[in-house]
Amino acid sequence: MKLTIQYFALLKDQRGLDEETIQSSAATANDLYQELAQTHGFTLPTTALKVAVNDDFASWETPLADGDSIVFIPPVAGG
């Protein structure tokens, strides 16, 4: 299935780009992050991240579907 991933903050620096569309068979958001972290050397563990699927917060166990848009959210620091 085709997935769109947007990167922000530290993950954007580590990936070196804002957004990409990839082919993946990852069943869940968690599986997808593990795949990408291994490929790109992301240093943040999932315990420090949240995940959004289709622009809303989601569980790491959310099953992914073709066309989903995924964002891994580094620790926020507004204000």
Binding site: F8, L10, A77
Partner: peptide
């Protein structure tokens, strides 16, 4: 807002380095 809204802060230090606040790692 500080705890939940996905906003990030990159500090540019006088030393010339930068850091993402809360990410415990300088880039």
């Amino acid at each position: 807002i500080k705890g939940r809204v996905p906003i990030w802060k990159k500090e540019h230090y006088s030393s010339g380095t930068t850091g993402w606040v809360n990410c415990h790692q300088e880039t």
